[in-house]
Design a protein around this nucleic acid. Structure first.
Lengths: 236, 236
DNA sequence: GTTGAACCTGACCAGTTGGTCAGGCTAGTA
DNA sequence: TACTAGCCTGACCAACTGGTCAGGTTCAAC
């Protein structure tokens, strides 16, 4: 059983309750003082631990005992902040989905195919590098037929995909890229970039047991981008 | 909790014990008669059920109760054939790995890059279509840091990958394809083709809730192949 | 038809699961 | 200083987990 601490994840906003954490509380860090700071620190620790455990075992395989252990709080305390395992999971998934949507910005704001695709692929690769747990949680959820995020898939993701597909289709119609099906292209980009997170362990093993160095990863990022750009008829 | 039957999977050879099942036994099917036939039928049913449950929940999340239920045998009977959950899992993974290796044949026997890559990509796409559970079990295992298949990764998969990478590198050196890193190309092929299995549910949802039809899938296969071929500098 | 090896399974077990709760503790304020 | 809202947690629970086993049934060889 894994007991190592999760890698530190960039701590996004923790929740929507909007507790105001004073500067003093912020500094407290390890040794929490004020009530507000205590809540902030503990919620973040639990959410980070939960993300790592859900990434490791999926929803069903994860245990609240292990989450509490990794967060460094008693199990009963975890249930004080998050009433059920499911509620905790939803909070984790909410955050992941938000981060993903934010990464798609280039496809909305840039009309040059080469620039837009390059930036989008780079953003997705960077996410896989810096935030692999989110990708794994998402993959787990979808592989298990998405019992808990089906509404996301059916509403927000469907709309998002349709909008971006329209842009890509227009590029193809205008002859600015080769006539590829937009969905196929998007799936390829998602699959390839997320592979570096979801299958990171396999990549590490095939790299002689060493995690990809920053230089190796940067090269992979360029190569992936080049292959896809050429693949849609753009000189890389 | 899922209780539906797993989709029918092409029943490959069940094991290495080499029980000889008579023609009569083969025909028996549902109502088994001979001892040998009983063993064959039950082992297959249990392995198929196990594959589906492991694909749905990963090793830790899967329960022997659910496997037994889907196989249509009492739990104690399952433990009669497979002593532990772990032993059952190993048998499932063994089979998946063998199927995957077999699919790689084109890269070994064909020296023309366009033909070899086309056939390999097609074979991997077909596997994702016809045998998605295996892909999901593998993905689960790797995402959970491969506690049980680490030896496969370190020995057989590493060797396999190094051999094929050598071929691809040679193609690049000889100027027969663009100078891409072999590992990056292989990862792209794996990621993209397996995406159609692992993320099949997401693809279905984004397809308006309908599974990709045979025609849609055939088109996707051609498009994926075309993008990758162009991506490595080959006219599609 | 007798025998025994192989197959079958309800009932059971100890350990783990998500979740509860009574009662203690502490920061903040009046 | 006294009060209290909010934080904390050991001990507990019913349900479920992987796995066992005694005792029964069935096939097939003699």
């Amino acid at each position: 059983m894994e007991t190592s601490r999760p890698p530190d994840v960039p701590a996004a906003r923790t929740g929507a309750e909007g507790e105001g954490d004073s500067p003093a509380a912020r500094k407290a860090g390890r040794r929490a003082r004020s009530k507000a700071a205590i809540r902030t620190v503990n919620e973040r620790a639990i959410l980070a631990a939960a993300e790592s455990v859900f990434a490791d075992y999926g929803f069903k395989g994860a245990t609240t005992r292990l989450i509490a252990e990794r967060a460094g709080v008693p199990k009963a305390n975890l249930h004080y902040y998050f009433p059920t395992k499911l509620a905790l999971y939803r909070r984790v998934v909410d955050r992941i989905f938000q981060v993903w949507l934010d990464a798609a910005d280039p496809l909305d704001t840039i009309d040059d195919p080469r620039t837009a695709l390059t930036r989008y692929i780079h953003a997705k690769m960077d996410l896989s590098r810096q935030y692999p747990l989110g990708s794994k949680v998402w993959a787990s959820e979808v592989m298990h037929r998405a019992p808990l995020i089906q509404d996301y898939l059916e509403t927000r993701l469907t709309q998002w995909t349709a909008d971006r597909a329209a842009v890509i289709d227009r590029w193809a119609r205008e002859g600015r890229i080769a006539p590829v099906a937009a969905h196929t292209l998007l799936y390829m980009i998602w699959a390839t970039t997320q592979h570096y997170a979801d299958f990171g362990h396999q990549i590490t093993t095939l790299n002689g047991g060493q995690e990809l160095s920053d230089a190796q990863f940067a090269r992979a990022k360029e190569e992936v981008t080049a292959i896809i750009l050429r693949g849609v008829g753009l000189q890389a």
